[in-house]
Amino acid sequence: MSEAKVQTGPLVDPYGSTRDDCAVIALKQVTREYAGHGSVVRALGDATFSIVAGEWVAITGPSGSGKSTLVNLIGCLDRPTSGELKIDNVDVASMSATELDRFRADKIGFIFQQFHLIPYLSALENVMLAQYFHSMTDEAEARAALERVGLDKRVSHLPSELSGGEQQRVCIARALINNPPVLLADEPTGNLDAANQTIVAELLQDLHRNGHTIVMVTHDPEMAGLAQRRIALSHGKVFCHPVGGPMVTLRR
């Protein structure tokens, strides 16, 4: 796959509206505008697409094209100015701020480019923090999550004592700990060297094989190529592309 294969121009969701029934994420004419100095910035305009359970979607686009805006909306950190955004068949627009906090803890697992680990907590505690804000801490579960990302020997290390790749794996373990239906990754390999990128990529592939839904912002064509589908953003407009690749099999 190469950039040449990317078709441009607005597209109707290639899977059609029948997919909406099994959609984990469904946007209908979602617009997000920011009130700037005197003018209104339309960061995302009329976005309509859906992502089904188990799908791995890459969001690409140049800087300022609205990627973060879209990720914030899907991550329930922000709400659309207009349009309908459903996560797990619940309309986010109707929720109060507190309900949204709750909902976010339940539905979304964040994987950040900068890892965002609490520097004074150990790897284990960083994972348990997500449990704490979600419901209750369970050390055994947290250990199991770290083991799953291959960090069973690093549980009591502080983030500063871990390599970038290890930190990102702690971040992934933390994202997984509450079994959210959506994993939202923002440039998950943006801060990693090639070796660690491979480890994280393999981890994401493994998660995908196990049925996790992954929405991933990336600039890296190689990473984008791992996804089944690409959502390209340009000036706040959405273009959806099916991306074929040897290692991707779309389950339908």
Binding site: L77, D101, R104, F110, H116, F133, H134, R174
Partner: peptide
């Protein structure tokens, strides 16, 4: 601020 943002992303309410 970063810490607070992270906690919010983990679903921590303002109250918490």
């Amino acid at each position: 601020r970063g810490e607070i943002g992270l906690m919010r992303s983990l679903g921590a309410s303002k109250g918490a």
